[in-house]
């Protein structure tokens, strides 16, 4: 049973959101305020201008980027208590994505609310996040702060024998081999003497970005699910 009172506090414009073919952008933005008592025309006007949304164009004629810009405009202007952003940047160029991040942070600062954002550009969105929660097939595999997550893994590169010496007793997430060189993503924090040992073994040692870490966790999980002894990268 749907609850109208609760649902009106939600805004969930999907990545592949369909609109009425007969509606122009202007029609859609004219009707959306009826659904949200908290709607901000100021935000909607500002975003349509910044994204240069063509107001008279029918929804079916919009490009991928314009559809994303329209979804972002509706989601932020709605000021809904629970705002879902489903891959909001698809088709947007770098400057439009920067506008989106800037407006999202600005709106959140003025009108705090719960924003659930699904994204594949993890590093780009990392600056927006305070806490990271990684789900794998419905199970929480990691829940921690962004900084802790970034410190929670590192990448070792170099000749295979030396790399294996350094990571011998570590939790290896993925391995990637290129000729005689090996690149290993390791879960866990660097130890005090790791840098010294890496220098001695002529290894490159660097923190993994959040995206590298999440990707490595995903590959690790896939390998376990398919019961493969080697990682996907290793096979290639």
């Amino acid at each position: 049973m749907e609850n109208a009172e609760i649902l009106q506090r939600m805004c969930f414009v999907r990545e592949d959101q369909r609109y009425n073919d007969a509606f122009s952008v202007r029609d859609i933005l004219a009707v959306a305020p009826a659904f949200y008592p908290t709607w901000s025309s100021e935000v909607a006007d500002r975003l349509t201008e910044r994204f240069r949304l063509p107001m008279r164009t029918r929804s079916k004629k919009l490009s991928r980027g314009q559809r994303s810009a329209l979804a972002i405009t509706i989601a932020l202007a709605s000021r809904a208590a629970y705002t879902f952003l489903d891959e909001p940047y698809l088709g947007l160029d770098a400057s439009s994505r920067a506008i989106f991040y800037e407006e999202l942070v600005g709106e959140y600062a003025v009108h705090p609310r719960t924003v659930i954002l699904s994204t594949h550009l993890i590093d780009e969105a990392a600056a927006l996040m305070e806490e990271v929660l990684i789900l794998d097939e419905g199970r929480i595999v990691l829940q921690t702060g962004v900084e802790e997550a970034s410190r929670g893994s590192f990448i070792v590169r170099g000749r295979e024998a030396e790399v294996r010496t350094l990571v011998a007793d570590r939790d290896i997430l993925t391995e990637r081999r290129l000729g005689g060189l090996l690149s290993v993503t390791v879960r866990g924090e660097l130890r005090e003497d790791d840098h010294e040992l890496a220098e001695e073994l002529r290894l490159s040692l660097e923190s993994a970005s959040l995206q590298d870490f999440v990707a490595a966790l995903g590959i690790h999980s896939l390998d376990r699910a398919t019961d493969r002894p080697e990682t996907l990268e290793k096979a290639s």
């Binding site: 109208a4 009106q8 506090r9 969930f12 999907r14 959101q17 009707v31 959306a32 659904f35």
Partner: peptide, 16 residues
């Protein structure tokens, strides 16, 4: 269209 395309819009906007 009213029951098909408006359906997606209305549900995105929090309607029942």
């Amino acid at each position: 269209l009213a029951m098909n395309r408006n359906f997606s819009m209305a549900l995105a906007f929090g309607s029942t």
